[in-house]
Amino acid sequence: MFRNERMIGLAVLAVIIAILPQFLPNNYYYDVAIQAGFNAIVCVGLNLLIGYAGQISLGHAGFFGLGAYASAILCTRYGWPPILALLAGALVVGVLAFVLARPILKLKGHYLAMATLGIGIIISIVLNTEAQITGGPDGISAGPFSIGGYTIKTEQTWYWVVGGTLLVAIWLANNLVDSPVGRALRAVNGSEVGAEVVGVDTARYKVLVFVVSAVFASVAGSLFAHYLPQITPAKADFFKSIEFVTMVVFGGMASTFGSLVGAVFLSALPQVLTVFEDYEAMILGAIMMGTMIFMPRGLVPTLGSLLVRRRG
């Protein structure tokens, strides 16, 4: 039953992505949409971890940054084809996440937050310090993304690439949520001990989701590195991690479309708030607080149930 509705949602999203360019007057609007799309890919993955498995991560920008730097370093320093560099980055991040997952996911709540935060910070310190390889604080360029002789040059093309990747990411996430693994995951979020009592190997599922969400971040990071002229270690730092978590919670935990809306909303909001100049930060903070106070479950679940109630 769930499955069909998720597929319809996906189809609607595909239509929206297809129509949206009609309303994008120039490359700047494309840029906002593209950056929102990159954030959304990471958040859809992160939501699997936070929303369904109930595990917080304050280090996902580290995985995002590792993917980005894997692409940049392998492409510019070693001349790898971008797609291979992307896959290599995803593999490295996947293996790293797998190795880290067991000891880390034994931790609970804020201790888990601390551990993931520490890992993210260590990654960004390494990226910042090993300047011969990474370019240091001023960053590194990954060059354009090309595959089979075709190079992505315009914002328009990037828009379709990111839109397509986002759809695939959501489709994968939906499948995971609806699979037996997904049901076990929701059990984990409900009560870990309870799930174990009925024979669910919670540890194994948490590891799986941790790895999947890290790989989502890595792939988004790789593409992002090719999209931007220059990437810097700031893409891997603590603030970026907090930003991702905020997007997920803001849009609504345990809702794939919530993560999407959270990512889009919080990516576009600072661009809108520039009209307030010096009061930008104040208003952004107030909007974040206000939304979470009055919609504690996040934008999409709260608005969704409101609409359903009104119709019903």
Binding site: E5, G9, V12, L13, F23, A36, G258, A268, V300, G304
Partner: peptide, 24 residues
Amino acid sequence: MRGKTLLTALAAGAALGVFGLAGP
């Protein structure tokens, strides 16, 4: 349940559309 998901997707679309409107 079906309605909820559809509306959710539409809400997502509305959020996406916001920045298609303004332009100095």
